[in-house]
Design a protein around this nucleic acid. Structure first.
Length: 576
DNA sequence: GCCGTTTTCGGCCCGACTGTTTTCAGTCG
């Protein structure tokens, strides 16, 4: 039973209790437990074995007992009792926009609806028309919600969302009377996926901006449009749309609104609790004491008034950021990055040549790059057999001679076999400047096998980095089960880096793993794995992920000068 | 159900928009 399994069960209990009409605070406490467990860097089984469950935030005696029960038997009595009472199919109705627990309960009790299929049939047959609280517009809204649910994949990858949001932000900024436009929400916090986009703006005529916004190219549906707020759906790919909320806010309370709408919800709850403790109140219009405004214009003022440093958005997840005493001023920034050590060229499955990749890297202000083709096992990616790699080494070294102003290294992204051996012999790896080792096949093994396999690669003196350590593809493929804690410990001990693969389909390691790895002393390398020159820009998403893992400049290997990278490689070879 | 600088009971964050309402409940963020 994994952390995600436990979290899912607690969320199910919360949903069922909510449909049942239970006390909202009790419901919330189950959600809190689910979130705590889902966010854990360590394994819930291990924490349970230590008897430390009730030390987790939001986990009391009762929840600790239920987790124990779940881990031991695979079931929780409360959930089974609730499921016997309430049709399980009702849970899927909760994900329909505009449908919440109260409506679900009404549909069930008054019309016997038990599933999404039942609901669709009931709407089609006109069976909801005389149901209290379900007017024609509500029913139409629900029907559209179902349609949206069925064609949308749910959450949108950070990179996809980013490009849509930027386009809209620029369109808004160009409208007359608009003084300022900013991203908020989970996009600003750089979560790996976002559910919707939030934009804030300051404008002299808010209603006019709202009006114009709802008519922008790409808007396929207007969900709501009032004086200060509009909600629309914007198409970002064929048949795929994302909800975008725009709010027009007064300039004098922009900071309060920006803070409020950036979230996370959990972070904001904590912040408001701090306000309440001082006898103040915090909302999107400001931090106030009765009628008196204490702070509203900027985020910095609000945090300062509550005795906190300004907290960067990527940290606002209620994962310990309130205990920070100082501004994490040296949190990693894109301009700290000095090079990219993982990229492909036409020699394997890339689209550009060595020279083109080098020129693009120079444009981005880099000091060094490393060319890393696939090895022979990745046949589908035109991986290089040893002989071709030997010739490629010559080609890259020759190109490096010609290229000025940039150090060009030759490396590889060598496959890790199922048994932990590598695709190239050590004597060939020894000729390379930097070696990243990755798993590309056979991800179906269990936790122990995957972990052992990766540890074997780390033990090799020529392996300098583990590429995309969990192999996940966001919204497409689950991470393979692997013990990141064990990997990070060995990486730290042997002087091996762990990659944050910056491609927004991967972002692997992910934020929580990044933080765990850093805490265990492992070096982190952020690489784009670029297969074309424009993909070098994905570095930005890697940096955001690193920030979400609380990384400072010094934690990241490729913020350092070239000589330090050489020393990093030499140190491991010498040690073993 | 959880929690404690007002501590073992009694709180637990707050406002906009919509639809179906004659004054508000439900949903959402």
């Amino acid at each position: 039973m994994t952390n995600a399994d436990v979290a899912r069960v607690f969320n199910e209990i919360a949903d069922l209790l909510e449909i049942k009409g239970e006390d909202a605070f009790r419901v919330n406490s189950y959600r809190r437990v689910a979130r705590t467990v889902a966010d854990l860097a360590g394994d819930i089984n291990e924490i349970a074995a230590r008897g430390a469950l009730d030390q987790l935030p939001g986990v009391g005696k009762s929840s600790a007992q239920k987790i124990q029960e779940l881990l031991a038997t695979g079931r929780v009595a409360l959930r089974d009792e609730l499921a016997a009472e309430i049709p399980f199919g009702l849970l899927e109705l909760l994900s329909i926009p505009s449908v919440g627990p109260k409506k679900v309960a009404t549909l069930w009790k008054e019309r016997g609806i038990q599933s999404l299929a039942d609901l669709k049939a009931a709407i089609a047959a006109g069976k909801l028309s005389d149901l209290k609280g379900f007017g024609p517009r509500s029913i139409e809204q629900i029907a559209r919600g179902i349609e949206f649910l069925e064609r949308s994949a749910g959450r949108v990858r950070l990179g996809d969302a980013w490009y849509v949001a930027e386009r809209l932000r620029q369109a808004l900024a160009a409208m007359p009377g608009v003084q300022r436009v900013e991203h908020a929400g989970s996009l600003r916090r750089a979560r790996e996926t976002v559910g919707d986009l939030d934009l804030l703006c300051v404008a002299s005529d808010g209603e006019a901006v709202i009006q114009e916004f709802t008519c922008l190219p790409g808007v396929v549906e207007v969900l709501a449009a009032g004086e200060t707020k509009a909600s629309v759906r914007v198409e970002y790919a064929a048949g795929q749309s994302i909800q975008v909320d725009l709010r027009v806010v007064p300039e004098q309370s922009f900071g309060a609104a920006w803070q409020y709408f950036t979230g996370s919800k959990e972070h904001n709850v904590r912040l408001r609790e701090l306000a309440v403790k001082r006898g103040w109140s915090l909302n999107e219009y400001g931090l106030t004491e009765g009628e008196r405004i204490i702070a509203a214009r900027s985020e910095e003022e609000i945090y300062a008034a509550l005795g906190l440093p300004w907290i960067p958005p990527e940290l606002r997840e209620d994962r310990g950021e309130f205990e920070l005493k100082t501004i994490p001023a040296d949190l990693l920034r894109l301009e700290h990055i000095r090079g990219d050590l993982h990229m492909h060229t036409t020699a394997s499955d890339g689209r550009n040549t060595i020279e083109e990749m080098a020129a693009a890297a120079k444009q981005r202000g880099y000091k060094y790059i490393c060319i890393t083709e696939h090895s022979a096992s990745s046949a589908i990616a035109n991986g290089l057999r040893p002989e071709r790699l030997r010739r490629h080494i010559q080609a890259v070294r020759a190109a490096a001679e010609r290229i000025t102003g940039l150090t060009v290294w030759i490396g590889t992204e060598v496959d890790i076999h199922a048994d932990g051996t590598l695709d190239y012999p050590d004597e060939l790896l020894a000729e390379l400047d930097f070696v990243t080792a990755s798993i590309h096949a056979g991800m179906g093994h269990d936790l122990e096998a995957n972990t052992r396999r990766t540890l074997a690669a780390i033990a090799n003196p020529y392996v300098n980095c583990i590429g995309h350590p969990t192999g996940r593809l966001i919204n497409e493929r689950e991470a393979m089960p692997i013990d990141i804690e064990a990997i990070a410990r060995e990486a730290a001990r042997t002087g091996t880096a762990l990659e944050i693969n910056a491609n927004y389909y991967r972002l692997d390691l992910k934020d929580q793993h990044v933080r765990l790895a850093r805490d265990l002393g492992a070096a982190i390398l952020i690489s784009t794995d670029a297969h074309a020159v424009d993909q070098l820009d994905m570095m930005y998403f890697g940096v955001l992920t690193a920030r979400r893992g609380w990384l400072r400049r010094e934690d990241v290997l490729n913020t350092r000068p070239a000589k330090d990278i050489r020393a990093f490689v030499a140190a491991k070879r010498k040690r073993t």
